[in-house]
Lab assay of single mutants.
Amino acid sequence: QVASGNGDRDPLPPGWEIKIDPQTGWPFFVDHNSRTTTWNDPRVPSEGP
Rank of each mutant, 00 (worst) to 15 (best):
G48Q: 15
V2D: 12
I18T: 03
N6F: 09
P45A: 11
G7M: 13
P49D: 14
P11L: 10
S34R: 07
P42Y: 01
P13M: 01
A3F: 11
D41M: 03
S4H: 14
P11R: 14
E47L: 05
P13C: 00
V44N: 03
P13S: 00
D41Y: 06
D31G: 03
I18G: 10
P14D: 03
Q1N: 09
A3D: 13
P11W: 04
R9E: 13
P42R: 03
W16F: 14
D21G: 05
S46E: 08
D21Q: 04
I18E: 13
G48V: 10
T37F: 00
W26S: 15
L12A: 07
D21L: 02
G15P: 11
Q23D: 13
E47F: 10
S34G: 05
V44W: 00
E17P: 01
R9C: 07
N33E: 09
R9K: 12
P14T: 11
I20V: 13
W39L: 04
Q1D: 11
V30Y: 05
P27V: 14
T36L: 05
D8I: 09
S46T: 13
E47Y: 06
F29L: 05
T36I: 08
W39T: 06
I20P: 03
N40G: 07
D31Y: 05
F28Q: 14
P11V: 14
P27A: 14
N6T: 15
R35Y: 08
G7P: 15
W16S: 07
K19N: 01
A3M: 09
G15S: 02
T38I: 07
P22G: 13
P13E: 04
R9F: 01
P42S: 08
T36P: 01
V30R: 03
D8F: 07
V2T: 05
D8M: 06
D8Q: 11
P27C: 12
S46K: 10
R35F: 06
I18D: 05
G48R: 09
F28I: 02
A3S: 07
L12M: 11
G5Q: 15
I18L: 06
G15A: 02
N40L: 09
R35G: 10
P45V: 10
G25H: 14
G7H: 15
G7K: 14
Q23L: 11
S34M: 07
I20L: 13
P22V: 08
I18Y: 09
Q1V: 14
R43V: 02
N40M: 08
R43W: 00
Q1P: 10
Q1E: 14
S46Y: 14
N40P: 07
Q23V: 06
N6C: 12
F29M: 02
W16V: 05
E17S: 04
T36D: 00
R9H: 06
W39N: 09
V2I: 14
D8K: 13
N40C: 11
G25C: 12
R35K: 11
V30S: 01
H32W: 00
L12Y: 05
Q23R: 12
Q23W: 06
L12K: 13
D21N: 01
T36Q: 06
P42T: 00
G5S: 15
S46V: 12
Q23M: 08
V30T: 00
V2A: 11
A3P: 05
N33M: 04
W16K: 13
Q1Y: 15
A3C: 03
L12V: 12
F29E: 09
F29P: 03
V44K: 11
V2E: 04
P27F: 14
P45E: 01
P11N: 10
R43M: 08
G15T: 02
G48Y: 09
D8P: 12
S4F: 05
T37N: 05
F29A: 00
R35E: 06
I20M: 12
Q1A: 14
P22C: 00
S34K: 02
G48M: 14
I18C: 07
G15E: 06
F28H: 11
V44C: 11
R43Q: 02
N33W: 06
W26L: 07
P22Q: 09
V2K: 10
N6P: 12
N33I: 06
I18W: 01
S4K: 11
N33V: 06
S4W: 04
H32N: 01
A3I: 07
H32E: 01
R35N: 14
P22H: 08
F28S: 08
K19C: 07
P22A: 02
G25Y: 08
L12P: 05
D21K: 05
S46F: 09
E17Q: 09
D31M: 00
I20W: 12
D41T: 13
Q23H: 02
I20Q: 11
N33G: 05
P13A: 07
H32S: 02
W26K: 15
P27K: 15
W26E: 15
K19G: 05
W26G: 14
V2H: 05
G15Y: 10
R35A: 07
N40W: 14
A3T: 12
D31Q: 07
D10Y: 05
P45R: 08
P42H: 04
G25R: 14
W16T: 07
Q23T: 04
R35H: 14
